[in-house]
Computed example of a mutant assay.
Amino acid sequence: MTNSNNTIQYVYAKNGTAIPEDLCTVSICSLDYAQVEYLPTLAGNLIYLIIFAALFIAQCFLGIRHKTWGFFVGMFCGIVLEVLGYAGRVMLHGDPFDFNSFLLYLIPLTIGPAFLSAAIYLCLGRIIMAYGSDSSRFQPKTYMFIFCGCDFFSLLLQSVGGAIAATANDKAGSDMGANIMVAGLAFQVFSLLVFIGLAGDYALRVHRAPKSNCQKFSGLRASRYFKWFKWSLAVATFAILIRSIFRVIELQSGFGGSVANNEALFMIFEGPFVIIACFFLTICHPGLVFKNLWAESNWSLRGRRSGKESIDSEEGIVLSSYEQPK
């Protein structure tokens, strides 16, 4: 990785002459002087870009139609960053020496999955509301505050690290930025592992508990789509976890490390796993699963109505949305 600063830096061209670094092209300079030590594949990165663009359109349609605003914001930001990141990689194919294209690839693809994780965290609270919080160790809002707070801290570290790397004028500064980004990614991995543990614990407690007395969402719980939704969240969570572990390994040796400059590993463990997560969060979109119960399952709406009026109203929505088991 080369850095952008106000001092003219000279490198050796393939013919042995020293030229300003800004004049480097693939035909003149070795890729050893490029931002990444390979020429990013055009076809592969373009395919990922098109897939994320299609998922973005689908998420916009479903999110606006079903008014799943919190989930929509997380997915919107995450997928937009994926689109920008792969646009940066496509640009790097044309000019692998361009520092701005490198930043456009590095920062969005590093922080994008943090927003996707936030969307997943929001869904756990809805599931707890659907089953009732009796089997939960914490209230739905507690899960949201803890894990979204962890996600924000992880995102902050990754963003700060990216900013330091972008403005560094030497290798020491670049390595510092990379180390801070690694710390943010490692904290994201830790948060995902804790989330998986607590979500698994809740699933086990629900399985062992007596039949839920929460009748408001009985039709939702009985629907096959709701079961698919829970599995889709599990698949998406593990996909993001695997991708995040890879990024920690990739960046721990700095931008010049062997893993950071191995395109094959990147194309296997970055794009596909994030695509898997987004795909399952789209085909089992919570708006399709909860239908018009998404707002009713929000913990913040509890207490808006009280007594029998609230129960009758919510049961009426359930009965109109799902066929009750006989």
Results as ranks from 00 to 15, higher is better:
98 D>Y: 10
97 F>P: 06
80 V>Y: 09
117 S>L: 13
103 L>C: 09
81 L>D: 10
57 I>A: 15
42 L>C: 05
48 Y>W: 13
78 G>I: 01
45 N>T: 00
60 C>S: 11
54 A>M: 14
75 M>C: 10
96 P>F: 08
96 P>C: 06
107 I>W: 05
63 G>P: 07
115 F>A: 03
47 I>Y: 11
122 L>S: 06
101 S>N: 13
88 G>E: 05
101 S>E: 07
115 F>H: 02
96 P>Q: 01
85 G>A: 04
84 L>V: 15
99 F>I: 05
94 G>H: 08
120 I>G: 11
80 V>G: 09
104 L>Y: 04
103 L>Y: 11
98 D>V: 04
122 L>K: 00
93 H>G: 06
53 A>N: 07
75 M>F: 07
74 G>I: 00
66 H>I: 03
90 V>Q: 05
102 F>P: 03
57 I>D: 10
63 G>T: 03
113 P>M: 02
61 F>N: 04
117 S>N: 14
55 L>K: 03
97 F>Y: 15
90 V>Y: 09
71 F>R: 01
122 L>D: 07
110 T>N: 11
123 C>T: 09
89 R>Q: 08
84 L>Q: 03
96 P>L: 06
77 C>T: 08
66 H>V: 04
72 F>N: 01
90 V>M: 14
51 I>V: 15
68 T>N: 08
66 H>K: 01
80 V>N: 12
76 F>S: 00
61 F>T: 05
65 R>Q: 14
53 A>L: 14
71 F>I: 01
51 I>R: 05
85 G>W: 03
